[in-house]
Design a protein around this nucleic acid. Sequence first.
DNA 1: TAATAGAGAATTTTT
DNA 2: TTCTCTATTA
Length: 859
Amino acid sequence: MPKDRARPFIFPKLRLRAALPGEEMGTLYEQSFKAAPIRTIVPPMSSFDDSDAFEAASRSLSARAMAARPMPYLDGLNPAQRAAVEALKGPVLMLAGAGTGKTRALTARIAHLLVTGTAQPNEILAVTFTNKAAREMKLRVASLLGQPAEGMPWLGTFHAICAKLLRRHAELVGLKSNFTILDTDDQLRLMKQLIIADNIDEKRWPARQLAGLIDAWKNRALTPDKLPAAEAGAFNRRGPALYGQYQTRLRELNAVDFGDLLVHMITIFQAHPDLLGQYQRWFRFILVDEYQDTNIAQYLWLRLLAQGHSNICVVGDDDQSIYGWRGAEVGNILRFETDFPGASVIRLEQNYRSTGHILAAASAVIAGNQGRLGKTLWTDGEDGEKLRLIGHWDGEEEARWIGEEIEAMARGTRGMAPISPDGMAILVRASHQMRAFEDRFLTIGLPYRVIGGPRFYERMEVRDAMAYFRVVVSPDDDLAFERIFNTPKRGLGDKAQALIRKLARSHGISLIEGARLAVDTGALGGKAARDLKALVDGIARWRGLMLGAAMSGPGMAPEDDLLIEEDHPIPKISHIELAEMILDESGYTAMWQNDKTPEAPGRLENLKELVKALELFENLQGFLEHVSLIMDNESDESEPKVTLMTLHAAKGLEFPAVFLPGWEDGLFPSQRAMDETGIKGLEEERRLAYVGITRAERVCTVSFAGNRRVYGQWQSQMPSRFIDELPEDHVEVLTPPGLHGHGRMGATASPVAGMMRGSDLHQAAARADVYNSPGWKRLQTNTARPGLRQPAEARHITIDAEAVSAFALGDRVFHQKFGYGAVVSVEGDKLGIAFDKAGVKHVVAGFLVAADSADDVPF
DNA sequence: TAATAGAGAATTTTT
DNA sequence: TTCTCTATTA
């Protein structure tokens, strides 16, 4: 345990509290009375918690001052929200439908807890799933209280909070408090080693599968010794054993994976009731966001902590449970009332987001699911536009139409107010669907942003660089060393690697020491030995610089933002300089500089970004801890852009206009979901449909295509069964452009052949009255001349013959988004450009200018 | 040991 | 189709 265990951090708080003016005697008495013994038992929250307590105390001072006034955060809440805010004690289930002001109620509840003096900021455990949600909650609580909310040390993600707890009690599960948190990549490599060591055919039994299996077990809080007999056959009957070996390896490496953060804490709490008791008393109020997404481990962890006081308020929506495939149990929320007897259930049903038609369509779709808790969303707003449905010939046609529709809506159509591209989103089921849109948008020059995809910290070069940092920070981080000791190439092949590993194993030393031994004993010779020696020496030297540069060693808890710099001497070399030095001297930077692939410049950029990100941290280890828990990367640009993302990524967001393409059986609902989990999978897909529709504020457009290219193969598609479930009264069928065709009709029987599945909507989508539909009029203006579109805004350059002829093969050109490049192909108005930074792209000539005239680009 | 050609697989994703 | 991983070959 940290040496500060006995520090009497409570005194400042009690003194301050006792001095509060105008406080009701009873409350004060009760609280100090209750509080005092608790606080002396509770393991002190390491040194910085003193400041928590201090801040908490001063906060409660001003909170009390506020209490004298009316409570402004209650203003404007509807009765249900208000009930949810004021039911402070006992178990509460806040069933919050989409767009019903859930976050508002949740944050007001926290404010209420604080302002009424019911809880101190550090007595509230508030858990979210994402860092984004945690951040947002902090901000909003702060704005409700009119002051910063750093005083809530226990508001965070499940993982961040568990990491914080586990660092305190690591030794109870055989770890040191400076354990590393591995990411997916590290896990995979570790498992692969185990599989190979076990002589299992790695092709038939890939590490990925084992990782999935172990992850699923951890989601269910199953440790190797608790695996039920039913699991014995998993992974060719080797699963349980490999799981045990994996955990052993992790312990040897002083490492945990994400699942372990939860599972270890559960293990600790179960084995140490006294400790659990202390935390139960410490966390007097528990709030959980997105409860429908909790898995079994998270549920158990919460239940352990909530036992006793049962002051647990969970917020969620069973209809928006879309993460079953990664272990979320809708059952948790469905069972809440039985799990916590006497729970009050508060339904937030008034929707502030969408129009009546959109809500009606969403409600009708979700009504197809069984076993819901049941909610009826309503709005006192307008009915607005009906949900729009349109069928297309193929996926490309769909992308083309949506692109044009977006531009039309940005201008304002049919008397509808214009909608900025920022307010529009295309939500797809699977990320590969995005490509058709990206291609199209690039062609027409429609600015877009993709949410999701590989994150900054998951990129290869960033991870390599971080592995270098890790090796310097913790020389026994074998996984990190393994990642980089032959990157850049140092002539170490399988043979050399095996030798080093064997040496390390047999001497019981880390890989890096094994490597040194191999070099020193001459077991390894030649160039490989020289390069390896340079690396090992380098690491030692960098580490020396680091230790000289900062006082902080491993063992502190860098995830605590409150730990601040004060007593650091001015370092001779900053961690930023050190990082640059590491990347340069190791030859890593040079490796990419010498790389001639088109990605290399981008990778170097990312490395620069990475070094820049270091500025926010006091030292390397603080940075590494942060990154292992927080994998996000925001870039905000000013240009209005359409958003492209998956339905999953869209949960919690809202847009004035939403496009839902690809509603075809097999794609959405996904065939795989239905094959693997049957009706359960289908219902989750249906919830996904519900999530999609409810993202829309004013306009929601569902579309499907009759033909689609899947992995290069053309496939005929059937409209989604969810389309049958849309209520006709709330749907307007737009005209498929293929029907009045621009020459495509003749090619195959009917553009919507195979779409006719008997539903009236399908038929309508196929044969809508072409000439009377508003869709037709719009289509006439918008799609009459494919390839010769009108500019949507002034800054779009019209595509014309001149632009085509303006470039020839080999010309240097400039593009606003991709920068400089050279023309490598010409096909009509489409040019293939090999961009210096962005690789080869196909772009319409109108978006390019000759490189030498780039300075007078008109946008 | 490194480069290259060929095979095989390719929802959804946070921490 | 396209990317990644593996086996082959120089």
